[in-house]
Design a protein around this nucleic acid. Structure first.
Lengths: 112, 112
DNA sequence: GTATTGTTTAGCGAGTTCGCTAAGTGTAGT
DNA sequence: ACTACACTTAGCGAACTCGCTAAACAATAC
């Protein structure tokens, strides 16, 4: 069933999901690692990069997926997590102008 | 006494402070309101914009100040809070490149 | 089938966050 | 001095977060 909330509200929720996801250092780090590895890694490879237990990493991945910052592609018994930069730029483009900063793609120098 | 940690570590802490501060909807909203009001407002004006109790808003302001996203200028018995956009752009410039997105001021189109 | 490998789910405990109300601090006005 | 105003600090409770371990699941290998 479709989401029946008006567009604006959904945006706010999605913005909240993105910023909340980015608020934890480990999750930001996951995105970085994903980037250096060409944007796609299995859960195991990712988990091996961190000192946390594997389930802990799994949960962080879940938060990132729900925020739309990564997507998951199952392949046999592996799961490949893929970086979704567009989601990040979309969130920035949506929010930055509201604090006077121009969208990510079209920044204006702040009039200090 | 000065902070004796090496520059890189301090950056990471500051980045964490900024992203943590931005993770709460109310705090993002405070920055927006501050922007629409020319970047400077008293605590009372700010508090009046939200349905929360004044002390709750005060605490949010404290988080934003500590993250460096706003600064405070006492004036008589008022306190003027001032938007600090530079801090935000600095955080973006520091972090975005690490996930393949070009700094805020010099974005490259993501190579989708 | 059974075992093994890759990964998630369940559930717990410590710590943090975020709302509140009540009390405190400091400046200005009379 | 005393009152009023602007604002913060203290402290509480409910909810959430984040780490863990143990158990479950799902796909491949034997």
């Amino acid at each position: 069933m479709a989401d029946r909330r008006p567009r604006g509200l959904r945006d706010l929720d999605e913005l909240d999901a993105v910023f909340s996801a980015l608020s934890h250092n480990t999750r930001r780090h996951i995105l970085q690692v994903l980037h250096t590895r060409k944007g796609s890694m299995t859960a195991g490879e990712l988990a091996a990069c961190f000192s946390h237990s594997w389930p802990t990493t799994t949960r962080h991945l879940g938060v990132l997926v729900q925020a739309g910052l990564i997507t998951v592609r199952p392949d046999g018994r592996e799961r490949h997590y893929v970086l979704n930069r567009e989601r990040l730029t979309a969130a920035l483009d949506l929010w930055l102008p509201s604090v006077g900063l121009g969208s990510y793609r079209q920044p204006r120098p702040d009039p200090s």
